[in-house]
């Protein structure tokens, strides 16, 4: 591995200023993916060889969480996932989130991997991760998945680039309508997570709205509501330590056995976490049963445009949507 400069940020302002000053600086959180990225020397016309790592873990208060009944949950972006998956307040008030926080990788990686890192990690596409492929994401002019092996690529919303969003935690947070706090040279702002991710058509070289000198500092999850049922499923080829073929997070508000409101998100299927709006519309005001769950899942997946090798994802997505709806029943 080539050597890089290391800078321990002392505050969010310091980190932002350092990033703004050095175009070849990159924020470092757990590093469980970034260091491998640098080691594999993944570069291209629009993916520079990073020269400075700005460590965010040294920022006071960047890690940790607090919960209150009124305000809900606030999680520092640098909090390790292993802290969150076992946190009493999260397990008791947001069991589905606890499940999602325990879903990525392995316990040792979750000890270093942070929530912010999980949400902001780069996709797993093997062409993106292959040093010899100059794909759109690295500034090239081709998506090798279109003609190559694409069993793990997008079935929904793919255009130009067919990556899938790799985060296990993002769909769960989105189902809870979480917000992200962002800091940049012009100060702080808070945006709904539903506006945080961007697809390849907006900018193929990145996956979020963050500019080079902006950082996610905190995730805010609204207080739990009564009458809400949630579910979370992740399908993988390997039991642990694997990225999802598909995962589904559902949040359903049920009143008198009827669905009053819902948010259902998938990841592993599209370049951004994917909201299953057709499912939500189909079940609204209805009582969920086997037939309705099947109908909703099938109708949602009519939208799917599988490639040569990934039609299986369509079937898995349907199966997991059905399961999520029936579990909430």
């Amino acid at each position: 591995m080539r050597s890089v400069k290391y800078y321990a940020a002392t505050s969010w302002g310091d980190a932002v200023a350092t990033l703004a000053k050095y175009p070849l600086a990159k924020p470092l959180a757990g590093g469980s993916d970034l260091l491998g990225w640098i080691k594999d020397d993944l570069v291209g016309p629009k993916e520079p060889r990073w020269e400075i790592l700005v460590d965010l873990r040294t920022i006071e208060g960047a890690s940790g969480y607090r919960y209150s009944q009124g305000d809900g949950l606030r999680i520092g972006a640098l909090t390790p996932l292993s802290t969150l998956e076992t946190a009493k307040e999260i397990v008791e008030n947001y069991p589905m989130l606890a499940k999602a926080f325990a879903a990525p990788a392995s316990p040792n990686i979750r000890n270093v991997g942070t929530l912010g890192g999980n949400i902001n990690q780069r996709p797993r596409c093997w062409y993106l991760r292959g040093p010899e492929f100059s794909c759109y994401k690295k500034g090239g002019d081709f998506c090798f998945a279109v003609t190559g092996m694409n069993q793990y690529h997008a079935i929904l919303d793919g255009e130009l680039c067919y990556i899938v969003h790799p985060s296990d935690t993002a769909p769960a947070l989105l189902a809870f309508d979480a917000k992200a706090k962002i800091v940049g040279p012009r100060g702080e702002k808070t945006v709904p997570l539903s506006e945080y991710f961007i697809g390849p058509r907006v900018d193929v070289t990145r996956e979020t709205i963050l500019a080079h000198d902006e950082l996610m500092t905190e995730i805010q999850v609204p207080a739990p509501q009564p009458g809400v049922k949630t579910a979370y499923f992740k399908a993988t080829n390997r039991e642990t330590y694997d990225f999802a073929i598909v995962n589904v997070a559902s949040w359903l508000k049920i009143k008198d056995n009827l669905v009053e409101d819902s948010r259902i998100y998938l990841s592993g299927v599209a370049p951004t976490p994917y909201r299953a709006t057709i499912v939500e519309q189909t079940i609204k005001g209805k009582r969920i049963d086997e037939a309705l769950a099947r109908q909703a899942a099938d109708q949602q997946m009519v939208r799917a445009r599988p490639m040569s090798d990934n039609a299986y994802k369509v079937d898995i997505a349907k199966a997991l949507i059905r399961r999520a709806l029936l579990e909430a029943n």
């Binding site: 991760r129 292959g130 080829n237 390997r238 039991e239 330590y241 990225f243």
Partner: peptide
């Protein structure tokens, strides 16, 4: 039996790390 393979696409090996080349983990 269940997960390991080194697929070669146009002469290139698709699985170039242990993230893509899956060997059983404890849960399996």
């Amino acid at each position: 039996a269940l997960m390991e393979e080194l697929p070669v696409v146009d002469g290139y090996v698709a699985t170039q790390s242990f993230a893509e080349y899956k060997i059983p983990a404890m849960g399996d």
